[in-house]
Each structure stands twice: as structure tokens, then as C-alpha cells.
């Protein structure tokens, strides 16, 4: 039961950081996507099942608090978490380079999907304006901040793993 509780607390904490710190940490009109880093990090550590469940709840919370259509971000974050989960089969230990690659790809993919589904469909064709003005700056900012969060999440995950090992007496990592 420890993991779900820790995940829930981390999810809410990341959401709160992302929505309340904005006025203080906004750079060039963008803010890092901490919630996405959370989902993608644990997807890498724990696999697709964890990734998609965390993605679903993170996106759902975003939808409920800010979205006009509930289920949109839930679906997007869930798919990203699911995809990032495949990396867990290739990498086991702390691998910052791989993680940054996944965060970068994830945030870009999220940005592009949001642009295509919510903006292009509305007849906003200035793709490069959105790319330069929003998608790229946000990805860069997210990557910068993700180093700190990735390390924190890594320590938390290690802690959880050793707790589980102690309890169940076998390697569950």
C-alpha cells in the first residue's frame, strides 16, 4: 500500500508546485511541466502499467481543475506514460541521459499533439510561432528543471524498493 500513497502524494505535490509557483518562476511566458516529469520518471523506473496509471490520474487532475473537456489530458498523459514505460525494460539504473531524452521527446510530443488537436483544428496555422513561442521554450525549461526532480524521484524510488525488499524478502525492482 506504500507505493499508491506515495504516488498520490507526489502527484498532488507536483500539481500544486506547477500551478502555484507560476507567477514566481515564469520565464518567457512558459513554465516547466513538472507533472509530466513525474509521470515519465516513474514510467521509466516501474514500467508501462505504472506509467499509464500515473499518467491517467495526473492528466485527469489537470482536466478537472483547468480543462473544459475532461479526459483529454488524461488520455494524452496516459499514452505518454505508457510509451515511456517501455524504457524500463532497457534501463534499470539511474541513467540521466536516457531520462532527458525521454523527457524531451515526451514534452515535444505533448506540445505538438496539443497544437495539432486544439489549435490547428481551430484554424491557427502559425505553426512556427507556436513552436518558437511555446513548444520549444517549454521543453528546454522542463529539461533544465527535470534534472533536480529526476534525482529526487530516483531517491524516493530507491527507498520504496528497499522497503519492499525488506518486507517481501525478494527483489521487486
Amino acid at each position: 500500500m506504500t507505493r499508491p500513497v506515495v504516488y498520490g502524494a507526489l502527484l498532488i505535490l507536483c500539481f500544486l508546485l506547477q500551478t502555484t509557483l507560476t507567477p514566481w518562476l515564469l520565464i518567457a511566458g512558459v513554465f516547466p511541466n513538472i507533472l509530466l516529469v513525474f509521470v515519465l520518471t516513474f514510467a521509466q523506473f516501474r514500467g508501462s502499467a505504472t506509467g499509464l496509471v500515473l499518467g491517467f490520474f495526473s492528466g485527469l487532475l489537470w482536466d478537472l481543475m483547468f480543462g473544459s473537456i475532461v479526459g483529454y489530458y488524461a488520455l494524452l498523459y496516459m499514452l505518454l506514460g505508457y510509451l515511456a514505460g517501455f524504457a524500463s525494460r532497457l534501463f534499470f539504473e539511474y541513467d540521466l541521459k536516457m531520462a532527458l531524452l525521454i523527457f524531451g521527446a515526451g514534452d515535444l510530443l505533448l506540445g505538438l499533439t496539443v497544437y495539432v488537436t486544439l489549435f490547428l483544428m481551430q484554424g491557427r496555422f502559425q505553426f512556427f510561432a507556436y513552436l518558437r513561442g511555446y513548444i520549444l521554450p517549454e521543453t528546454v525549461y522542463t529539461l533544465g528543471v527535470s534534472v533536480i526532480f529526476y534525482s529526487i524521484f530516483y531517491l524516493i524510488n530507491n527507498r520504496l524498493c528497499s522497503l519492499e525488499r525488506k518486507k517481501e524478502g525478494y527483489f521487486a525492482g
Partner: peptide, 19 residues
């Protein structure tokens, strides 16, 4: 994971349709 994905995708679609 695939099984959960399938169920949650359906749930998302349902939520999107409802909202």
C-alpha cells in the same frame, strides 16, 4: 499493462464524450 491501457482509454473516451 495493455489490459489497463484498454480499460482506461475507454474510460477517457467516455469522459470526453460526457463532458
Amino acid at each position: 499493462a495493455k489490459y489497463i491501457l484498454f480499460i482506461l482509454v475507454l474510460l477517457c473516451v467516455l469522459l470526453i464524450a460526457l463532458s
